[in-house]
C-alpha cells in the first residue's frame, strides 16, 4: 500500500512550481525586456543587455522613447489599420470557413472528399510562391466602392482583407470540430423540418464556441502580427499601411532601439487585450457547450 511521504510531497510540489516558474519566465521575460527597454535611452539599453538590468526599471527611466516614436511615425493610424484589417478578415473568415466546413461535413455532394483534400493541400504552399501572381491579379480586378468604379484593388483595405478570408487551416479546424458533434442533433433538426441554414445558425454554430475562439485567435495573430509582405507590395499609401510595415520607419542607419521597443510595446497592447478577452470566452465556451451523448 502506497504511503504519501510528506517530505516527498513537498519536494514534488517545489519541483512542479519551479518548472511552472521557469516556463512562465520564458514567456514573460521577453515582454518584460521589451517594456523595460522602451523606457531607457538607446545607449543604456544596449549596455544593459549584458546583465539582469535589462529586465529592471533602473537607470535613466522616462517616456521619451514613446514621445519620439509618436513623432517618427503615425502609430495610431497603423494600429487602426491593422485592427480594421484583422477584424474584417477574421469575421468574414469565420463565417465563410465555417460554412465551407459545414458543407464538407454535413451535406452530401459529389466530389466533396476530393475538394476537401485539395483545399487542405493548399496548406503546404508558401504564400511567397503565390504573392506575385496574386499581385498581378488584384492589380487588374474591378472594384465598386464608395469612391465609385475603378480597376485595380491596390491601395485599399479590401485588398488586405479579401485574399485572406478563405483559409484552409480554419476550414480544417471547423471540419474536425464538426465531425465530433453528435449527428443526432442534425438529424433531429432535419426531421423536425429545419432547413440547412437553420441547422447551421441555430444548432451547429451555437455549439462551436471553442473552435470559433481558436480560429479567431489563430487568424487574428496571423493577420495582426504577420502581415508584412502582402501589404508591402499592394499598399503604397501611408494611410493604408499596417503596423508591421510601419516598423520599418524605425530602422534607419542608426537604429534608435529605445523607440523600436516603445513601438513594439504599443502595438502589443491590442494583442494582449484581445487575447485576454478571448481567452475567457474560450474557457466559458468549453464549459457551456458540453454535449452529452
Amino acid at each position: 500500500m502506497a504511503v504519501i511521504d510528506p517530505a516527498n510531497h513537498g519536494l514534488r510540489l517545489a519541483t512542479r512550481y519551479a518548472v511552472l516558474v521557469l516556463v512562465a519566465a520564458i514567456f514573460v521575460l521577453p515582454l518584460l525586456f521589451m517594456v523595460m527597454s522602451s523606457l531607457k535611452p538607446t545607449d543604456q539599453l544596449l549596455n544593459d543587455t549584458s546583465s539582469l538590468r535589462a529586465f529592471l526599471p533602473v537607470g535613466d527611466i522616462s517616456l521619451q522613447n514613446y514621445y519620439d516614436a509618436f513623432a517618427r511615425a503615425p502609430i495610431g493610424l497603423f494600429v487602426f489599420n491593422s485592427i480594421l484589417v484583422t477584424v474584417g478578415t477574421v469575421s468574414l473568415s469565420l463565417l465563410l470557413c465555417s460554412l465551407a466546413a459545414f458543407s464538407f461535413t454535413f451535406l452530401k455532394w459529389r466530389g466533396k472528399g476530393l475538394l476537401l483534400s485539395v483545399t487542405l493541400a493548399t496548406l503546404i504552399i508558401p504564400f511567397e510562391t503565390i504573392a506575385i501572381p496574386l499581385l498581378l491579379l488584384v492589380s487588374k480586378l474591378p472594384w465598386i466602392g464608395l469612391e465609385g468604379f475603378r480597376i485595380g484593388w491596390l491601395n485599399s483595405y479590401h485588398v488586405q482583407i479579401i485574399p485572406w478570408i478563405a483559409d484552409a487551416l480554419t476550414i480544417f479546424l471547423f471540419v474536425q470540430y464538426f465531425k465530433d458533434l453528435p449527428e443526432e442533433l442534425v438529424e433531429a433538426a432535419r426531421v423536425a423540418g429545419a432547413s440547412w441554414w437553420q441547422v447551421y445558425v441555430r444548432i451547429i454554430m451555437p455549439l462551436s464556441g471553442p473552435v470559433i475562439a481558436t480560429g479567431a485567435i489563430l487568424k487574428s495573430l496571423k493577420m495582426y502580427n504577420e502581415q508584412y509582405l502582402w501589404p508591402l507590395i499592394v499598399v503604397q499609401q501611408e494611410s493604408y499601411r499596417p503596423i508591421m510595415v510601419g516598423l520599418g520607419y524605425f530602422f534607419q542607419l542608426q537604429v534608435a532601439w529605445g523607440e523600436v521597443m516603445a513601438y513594439l510595446s504599443l502595438i502589443t497592447v491590442p494583442v494582449l487585450v484581445f487575447y485576454l478577452m478571448l481567452q475567457r470566452a474560450f474557457i466559458a465556451s468549453i464549459a457551456s457547450t458540453g454535449v452529452k451523448g
Binding site: 506575385i132 499581385l135 498581378l136 492589380s139 485595380g152 491596390l154 508591402l232 507590395i233 499592394v234 503604397q236 499609401q237 501611408e238 510595415v245 510601419g246 516598423l247 520599418g248 520607419y249 530602422f251 534607419q252
Partner: peptide
C-alpha cells in the same frame, strides 16, 4: 510625395512596376 521605409522601398517599387502602378 509618398514616403516609404528605406528597408522595404526597393521591394515596393519592384512590386508596383509589376502591377503597373
Amino acid at each position: 510625395i509618398q514616403s516609404f521605409p528605406q528597408e522595404s522601398y526597393n521591394d515596393s517599387v519592384v512590386a508596383a512596376a509589376l502591377a503597373g502602378d
